[in-house]
Write a protein that binds this DNA or RNA. Sequence first.
DNA 1: CTGTTAGCGCTTTCAA
DNA 2: TTGAAAGCGCTAACAG
Lengths: 337, 337
Amino acid sequence: MAGPAGIREVAAHAGVSVGTVSNVLNRPAQVSEGTRGKVERAMVELGFVRNSPAGALRAGRSTSLGLVVLDIGNPFFTEMARGVEQAASERGHAVLLCNSDGSRSRQGIHLTFLEEQRVGGVLVTPVDSDTTHLDLLRARGTAVVLLDEPGRDDRCSVAVDDVCGGELAIGHLLQLGRRNIVYIGGPASIRQSTDRGEGAARAVVAAGLSPRRVLRRVVIPALNGGEGHQAVPAILEGRPDAVFCANDVVALGVLRGLIEAGLSVPDDVALIGYDDIEFAATAAVPLTSIRQPAQQLGRTAASLLLDEMTDAPGHVHQQVIFRPELIVRRSTVGPAS
Amino acid sequence: MAGPAGIREVAAHAGVSVGTVSNVLNRPAQVSEGTRGKVERAMVELGFVRNSPAGALRAGRSTSLGLVVLDIGNPFFTEMARGVEQAASERGHAVLLCNSDGSRSRQGIHLTFLEEQRVGGVLVTPVDSDTTHLDLLRARGTAVVLLDEPGRDDRCSVAVDDVCGGELAIGHLLQLGRRNIVYIGGPASIRQSTDRGEGAARAVVAAGLSPRRVLRRVVIPALNGGEGHQAVPAILEGRPDAVFCANDVVALGVLRGLIEAGLSVPDDVALIGYDDIEFAATAAVPLTSIRQPAQQLGRTAASLLLDEMTDAPGHVHQQVIFRPELIVRRSTVGPAS
DNA sequence: CTGTTAGCGCTTTCAA
DNA sequence: TTGAAAGCGCTAACAG
C-alpha cells in the first residue's frame, strides 16, 4: 500500500547519506565493507526496491532493450527471442518483448512505446522495407539493429540468406524430379517471402528449366496456418507435384489441407517448409524444411546492439548473414529414407 | 544523437509554458483550440517524444502492466499473452512480457524487474505454489492477478478447472476400453500437472476401477517436447494401451517417439494431450486434446488487473474458473471418426 | 571513504 | 485559459 521504501529511507535507517546508498547500489567497491553491510541490511529490512524510472530519467535512458518480432505465435520468433533474452541477461540487460503481428501500425505503436520508455536500443524484425520510423528513432538517439533482415552498411543487421534458402528448397524438389511446383508466400511487402521466391526461381533457371512452366506462385495475406489451410484449393488447381511454403507454420496448415483432400504426401505432392520449427518433425508427415539458426540470430543481434548501446570500443556496423540448411524428412522423400 | 525534444523545448517553440504543453498532453479539452494547435504543431516539428520514465517517476507508477508466463515456447501461453495484450491495449495500457521458463529464480528476477519498473500491476502464471514473492509485491503496492492458477478469495485469479480436464481425458480413454493408461506429467510443484493427474485418478475411481491397476504415472523434469520424446522408453515399459500427457507439446514429443518405436496410434496406444494448441490438429496423428480458452483466459485476467489497478468502482476480488472441453481426434479413435 | 547538492522531464496545484 | 514553481527518486560531481 505504502509502496516500497526509497533510497532516502534506507539512508536514514542505516545512518548514512543518500549518496552512499547510491554508491552501494552502483559502485559497491567504493564503499567500505562495514558501511556497505549496514546499508544492505537496511535495504533488506525496509524492503527497498530500486526505482528504475527515476534512474532512467536521471540517465536519460534505461538500460533495457526492446525487441519487436513479426509473429509471437510462430515458434521461429520465440526461439529467436530466447536467444536475444539470453545474450541480454548475460550482460545484465532486460528485454521488452513486443509483437507487431505483421502489422505496420502495431510496429509503429511498439516503436513509439519503446522510444517513450527511453530504452537503450531496439531490435526489430521489420514488417516491410520502409525504414522511415527506424531512421527517425536512430536520428533521435536510439540504437537500432535489424533482425532477420539484411541492412545497408550504415547500420548493424543480422539475417539469413533467404535467396539461398529458396534455392536449397527448390533444388531439392527438382532433384527429386518434381516439375510442377507451387510456391506459397505472403504479399510482396514481406521480404523473407519475396527472397525465398526469388531463390526458388533461380534454382529453376540454374537447372535449365523455365520458371514460368515449372513454378507457380500463390499469395496468401498472412503467413499463418489458417491461411495455408485455406489456400489448398487454390494450390491444387494446377495439379502440382510439389509445394514449397514460405514457412513451416503455413506448411503445417497446407499439410492438413492436403491430407483432408485425400492426397498423399509426398507421393502425390511433395511438401517443404521453412524455419525447421520443433513441430515440423512431429507433423503428420515429418516436414522437410530449411533450417535457420534462430537462437543464434537472436544472440548475435543482441550482442551487436549491446555493443552499440554501450559504445563498445572498436564497434563498427556490421551485417551478419547466416546460411540456411536443408533438412530432409519424409514430406519430400517418403518413408524410404 | 541529441535525443528527442522535451516538453520544455516544445513550450518555447510554441511560445507557451510547460504547464500548457503538459495540459495538451494529458487534458487537451482544457486548452483553447488555438493554443492546442500551436503546441501540437511544435511537437511534430521538433519530433517530441513523451518521456515515460519522467511521468512514471512523477506519478509513482507507470501505466504498463507486467505478464510473466511459464513457457513462451508453448503456443498455449503465447495465445494467452495475445489475449492479455488485446485487452490491455484496448484500454490504453502496454504489456511487458516476461518468460520464466518454469524457473523459480527467473520468475523472481522478472518480478523484481517489473517492480523496479513500477508497473501498475502484474499478471503471473506462477512456477509453483509458493506465493511469497507475489505477496510481498502486493504488500508494497503492486496489484497482482494470478493467471492459469486458482487463487484464494483475497485476490483475483483466472484459471481453468484442471481436475475436470483430467477427468475428461481419462473418462474418454476408459470409455474407449483402455485399461492400462500412463499419465505423463511434470514434477509435483507444477500444479496444472498435479491437478490433471488428480482428475485422471478420479475418473478411474468414478468408473469403478482401481487407479493402482489402471493408471501409472511417469514424471518428466520439464513439460516440453524433448522430455516427452525421451520418456517414451519409460512409458512403454508397462506396455500401456493409452497415454495421457500433461500438455500438447509433450504429447507431440511422445507421438514422435511412439512412431519411431514402430507403434500405431491409436491402435497400439491411444494418445491424448492438453491445451489443444494449433499444432495438435496438424500432428502426425491428429491429436485428441483438452481445449482451454487460452485467449479468453488472458483477456479476463487483464481486465481484472486493470480494474484493480485503476481502482474501478465496485471492484471485488474474484476467482474466475473456466471449464475445459474434450476435442476428439484420431489419436484416440482412429481414422474411422 | 562519505556527505551535499543540483538537476533529469514531467505533472500538478495554485495564482494570475 | 494559462503561467509559475515545487518536487517525484535517483545519480554524479564535488567537497570534505
